[in-house]
Simulated assay, not measured.
Amino acid sequence: MPPVELTWGAATAVGQREDNQDRYLAAPPVFAVADGMGGHAGGAAAAEAVVEALRSLTSGGTTTVEAIRLALQRADGEIRGFRGPDKAGAGTTVAGVALVDEGEGPQWAVFHVGDSRVYRWHEGCLEPVTRDHSVVQELLDAGYISDESAATHPQRHIITRALGVGPRPDADVVLYPVVPGDRYLACSDGLTGELADDRIAQLLLAGGDAQQVVMTLTAEAESVGARDNVTVVAVDVSHPGTSTGETAPR
C-alpha cells in the first residue's frame, strides 16, 4: 500500500435529550461511536465502557479483527456486570472503523453492533457499509415495508443486537481497502433519524475537512429538531502532505 495520511474529526450534540449518552473515540487506528441506552447513568456508562475497551487498541499503528472482537466482548461482559438501579438495563450500540493488518498490509475493518452506522464516501458517492441490527431493517430485508415507511415506522427504534443486553452479540465486521480520497463516517442514530442519506451526501459534497464536516452534520441535525443525541466521527484518507487538521501518517 502506498503511504497515506489520516485526518479525522468528531462532534457530538445533546439534542432534545436531558443529557448525552453517546460517546466516541477518534484515536488512530480506531474511530468509533457508541450510543448508550437505559437509565441516564447506565447508558452513558455502557457507551463509555465500549469506548474504553476500544481505546486499548490504540497503542500501535494497526490492530486486528480478533482484537476488535475481543475488546467488544470485554465491554459486553463489563456492562452485564453493572450493579445498581441507575444502571439496570444498560446497553449500547457501537459502530466504527479501524486500521487492521491481517497479514496483507493495512485494511479498514468496518465493525458494528446495533443501529449506529458507518458510511463510506468513495469517488463522490455515499455508500452505507453497515446494515442496522433492528426490527425495521429485518422488515425491509423481508420486503414487508418500503424505505419510505421505514423512517416513520413505530418500531424504528427497536434494535435486535446490542452490547450488554439480550443474547450475547457478535459484531459484524467487513474489510475494505485503504484508498486515498475515501472518507469514513461513523454516527449514532441521532444523525440518521433526522437526516436522510441523500441529505448527508449533499452536505459531504459541499466539502470541508473532516472536522468541518462533522460539525456541519451535527448542526444540521440540531436545526431540524435532533430528538436524540447526535454524534459523528469522520476519518479521511489522503496522500501525505495534501491534508489539513489532525493527522497521522500510515
Rank of each mutant, 00 (worst) to 15 (best):
D141Q: 14
V237F: 01
D76F: 05
V230R: 00
A10L: 07
V232C: 10
H239Q: 15
G103H: 11
Q16P: 02
D197F: 06
R168L: 12
H122R: 15
F31T: 06
D141A: 14
L72C: 07
A109W: 00
T7M: 10
V235R: 01
C125L: 15
W108H: 07
S238D: 13
H133L: 08
V214M: 02
G39E: 04
A10C: 12
D209V: 08
A171K: 00
E138S: 13
D182L: 09
D132Q: 11
T92I: 07
N229R: 07
T152H: 08
E222H: 12
D228E: 04
R199T: 03
E18P: 00
P2D: 13
T244M: 12
L99K: 01
R199M: 06
V178D: 03
Q137V: 10
E194Q: 14
E18F: 06
P29R: 01
T231R: 03
V213F: 08
G89V: 12
A226G: 08
W121A: 02
P106G: 03
Y119G: 01
A88W: 13
G61E: 11
L126P: 01
D170S: 15
V65H: 04
A196H: 12
V233A: 00
V136E: 00
T63A: 07
A109V: 05
D22H: 08
T12R: 10
A221L: 01
G39M: 14
A90E: 05
V100C: 05
R74Y: 12
A98F: 04
Y144R: 14
V110L: 03
D197L: 04
I79R: 08
R156T: 05
A210H: 03
D19I: 12
G105E: 07
G245M: 08
S149L: 12
R120C: 09
P3F: 12
V173G: 02
P169C: 08
G143M: 09
E194Y: 04
L175V: 04
M215F: 11
P177S: 11
Y144E: 15
A75M: 02
P154T: 13
S243C: 08
T218D: 01
T58I: 08
A90T: 06
H153A: 00
H122N: 10
S134M: 11
V33L: 00
L195Y: 03
G91K: 05
C125V: 15
D198Q: 08
D236W: 02
G190W: 03
G77Q: 10
D170K: 11
T231K: 05
V233D: 04
H157V: 14
A11K: 00
G9S: 02
G61I: 06
V178L: 02
G208T: 08
E123D: 15
T12L: 11
L70T: 10
T192R: 03
E220W: 09
T63P: 08
D86S: 15
R117T: 04
E48G: 08
P29M: 07
E48V: 07
I145A: 00
T231G: 02
P180N: 10
N229I: 05
Y184W: 15
R17D: 07
H133P: 03
G89P: 09
T63M: 08
C125N: 14
D197S: 14
E220H: 09
